[in-house]
């Protein structure tokens, strides 16, 4: 990836949308403001020189330490991170976008954080976002059909969150 030159173009196209970058790590990434992610993605697919026409993966990472002893030592504040791995089948380059979200909307436990859905940009995102919603509990606004995909529809909680408690009973099936 032609890192700095590409970043410059992105910043010109979307002033203020780039919140942070890391170019000297193994997989260089760009952090994008949550409110702008859909526009940035559409631009990356349609207008940028590289034409990132393929979305490979969406991952949610829950940055939350359940152990209070360890939590006092970590350098970050609790948050959720969305990672988008893009790929261009034309120029064969990859790009990593990151979006930071609060763990809960307005810090109210139970209120899922919201971010715009990129299913209108890449159809891959349809199922990937459903999976992230299902397992990590992130609400994708504008998603055509946001339902659980791997867990049953009446499942409670979001298993890939660090503070998830495994249910002891599901329809009479004991877990322990």
């Amino acid at each position: 990836m032609r890192g700095p030159a590409f970043l410059e173009k992105l910043e010109v196209a979307f002033p203020g949308a780039v919140l942070g970058t890391a170019l000297d790590v193994i997989d260089p990434w760009v952090e994008v403001a949550a409110a702008r992610i859909v526009d940035v993605c559409r631009w990356l697919k349609q207008s940028s020189d590289s034409r990132f026409d393929s979305l490979e993966c969406i991952t949610a990472i829950d940055w939350f330490e359940t152990d209070p002893k360890k939590a006092s030592k970590v350098s970050w504040q609790p948050h959720t991170e969305l990672v988008y791995h893009l790929w261009s089948t034309v120029s064969r380059v990859s790009l990593v976008l990151k979006v930071k979200l609060p763990r809960w909307k307005d810090d109210l436990p139970g209120q899922l954080p919201e971010v715009g859905s990129v299913a209108c940009v890449w159809r891959t995102a349809d199922w990937h976002e459903r999976e992230v919603y299902d397992l990590s509990g992130i609400e994708f606004t504008g998603h055509p059909d946001l339902r659980r995909i791997l867990c049953p529809e009446d499942w409670e909680g979001y298993p890939l969150r660090k503070d998830y408690q495994m249910p002891l009973d599901y329809h009479g099936i004991r877990a322990k």
């Binding site: 790590v25 193994i26 993966c57 991952t59 990472i61 970590v74 990672v83 990593v96």
Partner: peptide, 30 residues
């Protein structure tokens, strides 16, 4: 740190994403 890699498996491109906080146990394995 974190690293993502896709390999050409018989069924298609299988990607693994590893996020580490410096310990032996991955923070996130995708």
């Amino acid at each position: 740190g974190d690293a993502y890699l896709e390999t050409e498996c018989p069924k298609g491109q299988m990607g693994f994403y590893l996020v580490s906080d410096g310990s032996a146990i991955p923070w996130r394995a995708r």
